[in-house]
Write a protein that binds this DNA or RNA. Structure first.
Lengths: 119, 119
DNA sequence: TCTCGTTATATTTCCACAAACATAACGAAG
DNA sequence: CTTCGTTATGTTTGTGGAAATATAACGAGA
């Protein structure tokens, strides 16, 4: 394979993995990172800021996740002394763990295929 | 996992695989199908028509492939009684075979992960 | 030398989607 | 009853990339 490619350019194998519903995407690497940030920071707005994403976009993603899940994956609270916040529920944490694992296996697959390409 | 999803909606795992260069994408499932059509039909314009793609887009993709390859993957000819045409070179055919194989292994991976999701 | 189907290439138009912007509601605490 | 940071939601603006449009060149064959 590599003998087909221009030797003065560097190429790499890449890929994406996601779970899609009838209308919307359900889960992907971006949503995974968002959930991880929400879990770590306790708020959608802080997570958005940390990821350099607009709050609206982050909220829309969380909303899409919750709409497609049997039970809320992120539970939110408005108002209060600290303005409110968001927590990743037990179900959300389960999703994070399982998708992380799948993503890790995918990256192993990519690494193996990359190896194959070099031969 | 499936216990997290709304039971009234149908979800499926999906993914994409591609080889990227420094500036452009080099290879992916779309380019694979284009090469297969060019090989079968002997012309970029017929391949484009068959795929319901504009000729310009198809030509741009072929051009991108050729630019990034050490040797032409698609060889073209203008003019002549039939107007010209395009053939997938031996190198192009090798690329098709290798990417097909990789894509098949990826689909096997997806199937295995899909199995895992259902449990 | 005219035709025809194709390759080759530039320019313009269009549009889906993201980003940006705006505003209301919420509720604990002081 | 005001403040503050957050959630919640609608509207407007911007833009990258695809699609559409246009045109030239090519060369075998009639």
């Amino acid at each position: 394979m590599k003998d087909l490619l221009r030797p003065d350019l560097s190429f790499r194998l890449n890929g994406r993995l996601w779970i899609e519903g009838p209308t919307d995407r359900f889960m992907g690497i971006g949503r995974l990172e968002l959930l991880q940030h929400v879990h770590a920071l306790g708020s959608i707005s802080k997570a958005a800021k940390a990821m350099d994403m607009s709050y609206k976009r982050a909220w829309d993603l969380v909303n899409s996740l919750n709409q497609q899940a049997r039970q809320p994956l992120v539970s939110t609270q408005t108002g209060g002394s600290r303005g409110g916040g968001a927590v990743v529920t037990a179900e959300g944490q389960q999703l994070v763990r399982e998708f992380e694992a799948m993503q890790a296996r995918f990256e192993a697959f990519l690494a193996a295929e990359t190896q194959r390409l070099a031969e």
